[in-house]
Design a protein around this nucleic acid. Structure first.
Lengths: 363, 363
DNA sequence: TGGCTGATTGTGAACGTTCACAGCGCACCG
DNA sequence: CGGTGCGCTGTGAACGTTCACAATCAGCCA
């Protein structure tokens, strides 16, 4: 409850001037050892700790050594892994991290980013919503560095780290085509989200390359969260002309599919790997990306910018990896859940799981 | 790159004094509409945004409207769910959140907390490591409010929100005992972590109440992460006198157990629920706690303290819920993986999953 | 002895904002 | 018509720190 002691208090206690205390606290040279000892003694007695807010206000190098991290949803395992790696990079450099979730709501994004900038963050790692961008330009003009991750921000000339979603989706869909599927459903999140558009485009292109048209009855956009996804998949399964295979546009949709039991009736390939995907029955094949690598790369890029790199904006494309765990099975093979379980029981599951295990080296 | 404009610039542009600009920006009454309009015009032209750091330095109410959130590992789904709910509470109140992971390393905890306090956070939501505490007392003396979550901090007189780990563990172990198990292994994380000590104590007490002694050959502490857990479980499975059942001390150990295939050979009950636990083969029974509720409660408590509540420290104990998904099966029933799979194939899995589904209402 | 050097310490202003208070003009009222 | 009060605006100081520079002192060499 006591007022926090200031340098002034320390200076008085040690019988020196403010500036001397400042020098001792900052660890600058040029203070007599004896004096420094007296100051340190006073600091200990009073329990003094420097006020870094006041410090940053005054310092010549106007940097707050703080960055902002803005993600869609911190509770989503994909983003939390990303967040952790950003935080690690920041910690290594002595930076602090302000964090905020947008819920993919442009208004909340604006609120959060605005508050961060008012706190003088040196930069932002941003998973942008689909919203308005003019506002970011203003912040950047004021010197706030921005790096996008997972998705680019339309019309913002900034660095961006993402995977080749289109190619990854293409690989997944071709995998299903190779296994003989012709009725392949697509289920994804909002089309406002760039990754979803790209993945859907990859789906379309792969179908087109195989001479197939997109059957809109097999396409669902805008699924937020696994519950909505599970419901949509339920409908699809109950329809008179169900698909034989499913490509899901993100981890939550894949989870919804698994919850709805889709993987026991259809072939299933999902975008994004997830914990225990290889332990399910059947194990789920996925297009895997490495969220920690995304975060790390974005943070490194951002710190480069903060350190003065003012080259033209860069786009870094990380690899996706197709992890075949067997759920892309041939047409007919998936017709009955019982049959799949039987296959799993014969040991095929173990074999596939092992394959996936080697593929997943590192984390 | 341009210098950020300040109030002074706005004042000059609008032909008014600093104070008038301050009033307009703060939305205070008592400025003539005409003047306010001129100021707002200047603000828009210059792209001015208030510097909240300077503002907080000067304001009478010395609050930074920022809290710190310190968790073990932000990438862990349990903590990321907790973090998200803390952030939501903060957002609702217009507070920002600084976030940091400790890796359960007291040194990093100290670094992070110290840096947060130097930034004048108003309070901390803390998942404490087992480390030294003297240092927190100093911060609290300076007015930083602290609320512990998930675990109390030994010797720190602060609010704490956690579940009754001991009782939850007892329920789990009794469940196994009821199913006839007598050789029940315990695998957990470091004993330095309070939750692990409590859960192990619950395990011991439940065994003792059944007249059983703890067999140290069936106990492993200190497992960090799922890989270590999987390895330890592998050893246990290969031993000459394996257990018939396993109680795991946290989610990562449970994951390790699943990865090692333990749930196909032993009965298994884990502490902490996890995504897809009900879709595994067999589905895994767990002692479930609600990380979002923990975070929300902790944040509410913290904001109460910040708002001036100075009652004696409170301890809030939230409920655990035992979710029976069938993996506590009777002795002998789990002897062979093949048999389990067969059972699953007959549809029993679906039945159990449905049961679990109802139990998991609300996220 | 005088002045120069280097080490140590102190002084005043400044960072961008808000607080406390004072000043101005105008209308209103007795 | 003078006082009072109110609405609006400005002034100077302050928050806790660092910057730029000045001051002091001892030692040392010529």
């Amino acid at each position: 409850m006591a007022e926090r002691p200031t340098m002034k208090d320390v200076a008085r206690a040690a019988g020196v001037s403010l500036m001397t205390v400042s020098r001792v606290v900052a660890g600058e040279a040029g203070v007599a050892p004896q004096t420094a000892a007296r100051v340190e003694e006073a600091i200990r007695t009073l329990g003094y700790q420097r006020n870094d807010i006041a410090r940053n206000l005054r310092r010549k190098a106007q940097d707050s050594r703080t960055i902002g991290l803005v993600v869609d949803d911190l509770a989503n395992p994909f983003f939390s892994a990303l967040a952790r790696s950003v935080e690690d990079e920041a910690y290594r450099r002595g930076f602090l991290v302000l964090v905020g979730s947008t819920n993919d709501d442009p208004r909340r994004e604006r609120d959060v980013v605005s508050a961060f900038c008012a706190r003088q963050v040196d930069g932002l790692v941003l998973v942008p919503t689909g919203g308005n961008r003019a506002f970011f330009r203003a912040q950047m003009a004021r010197g706030v560095k921005v790096v996008c991750v997972d998705r680019p921000a339309a019309g913002l000339p900034v660095d961006c780290v993402a995977v080749d979603n289109r190619a990854g989706a293409g690989t997944a869909v071709r995998h299903l085509l190779v296994h003989g599927h012709r009725r392949i459903a697509y289920l994804g999140d909002r089309q406002e989200i760039w990754t979803q558009r790209e993945r859907f485009a990859g789906y379309e292109e792969a179908l087109a390359a195989a001479g197939l048209a997109v059957d809109t009855a097999l396409v669902r956009h805008g699924l937020r969260g696994h519950q909505e996804a599970a419901a949509a998949i339920g409908e699809l399964m109950a329809s008179s002309a169900p698909p034989t295979a499913l490509f899901s546009g993100n981890d939550l949709v894949t989870l919804g599919a698994v919850e709805a039991g889709a993987s026991r009736r259809f072939a299933l390939v999902g975008f994004d790997d997830f914990l225990l995907a290889d332990k399910l029955n059947p194990p789920v094949s996925v297009v895997s990306q490495d969220p920690a690598a995304l975060g790390r790369t974005a943070a490194q890029l951002l710190f480069g910018r903060i350190d003065g790199d003012d080259a033209a904006p860069r786009s870094v494309v990380l690899e996706t990896r197709f992890v075949d765990r067997g759920s892309g099975g041939k047409v007919g093979e998936m017709a009955e859940a019982a049959k799949v379980v039987e296959v799993a029981g014969t040991g095929k599951v173990a074999e596939v799981a092992e394959l996936a295990g080697t593929g997943e080296a590192g984390e």
